[in-house]
Design a protein around this nucleic acid. Sequence first.
DNA 1: CTCTTGATTAGATGAATGTCAAGTTAGGTG
DNA 2: CACCTAACTTGACATTCATCTAATCAAGAG
Lengths: 111, 111
Amino acid sequence: MKHDAVPLERDSAEEYASWFKALADATRIQIVSLLARHREPMTVGQIVAAVRIGQSTVSHHLKILSEVRFVLVEHRGTSSLYRINQACVGCFPSAADVVMGNPVPVAPACD
Amino acid sequence: MKHDAVPLERDSAEEYASWFKALADATRIQIVSLLARHREPMTVGQIVAAVRIGQSTVSHHLKILSEVRFVLVEHRGTSSLYRINQACVGCFPSAADVVMGNPVPVAPACD
DNA sequence: CTCTTGATTAGATGAATGTCAAGTTAGGTG
DNA sequence: CACCTAACTTGACATTCATCTAATCAAGAG
């Protein structure tokens, strides 16, 4: 037997899981893909209008997404501007490849 | 403004979310990556030994993973053989690309 | 200062989830 | 047949989660 086919280290598995968990909700997927397509930063109000979900709920999801750094915030006066983290646009799909056992150019590190 | 930057349809978002949700747990990530690396099908016992988690829990996770068809089952006598669904190995990372707004060769359809 | 508007925080609630221990089913073997 | 072993199912328990309403906060405008 070549090598014992040890699974992903628990630590790595937990980190990847936390990324997938951030996208394990339809509303958050809408938000992320919205921010990714719309290249410019968006305010909470704009996002609320697009996904048609309560404002506080959207705010909550944005917090979750920014904790994993899928999106980045910048506070401008009375409004907050959210934008996609370009680093994740490339490295997140790579994480999917790692889990699926695909060869990947460089280990994904979103940050 | 070019076009109104409509987010992903709710339906698509929910489908993608269900895929990510299947990998939103460290144990399931370990199982999937284990099956992906270990090219041969594995029995539940082998998987339990590798991830060191209660058998019923592993069985539960395997059920979840096979419901989304990330893994496929085949019952052979007294034991069940689980293997990775090769179709997903390619198409799941593509789903990540879609959400991230990356261009993708062909719409991902895992099945 | 007061009002308005955009955003975060707090609290509540109902639903889903991960885990394990114990019980059950079912294929092989003596 | 009785036994054993691999796997699945059930029930319970504690967590986590998505959503909403209401309350709070912060920045401009009058």
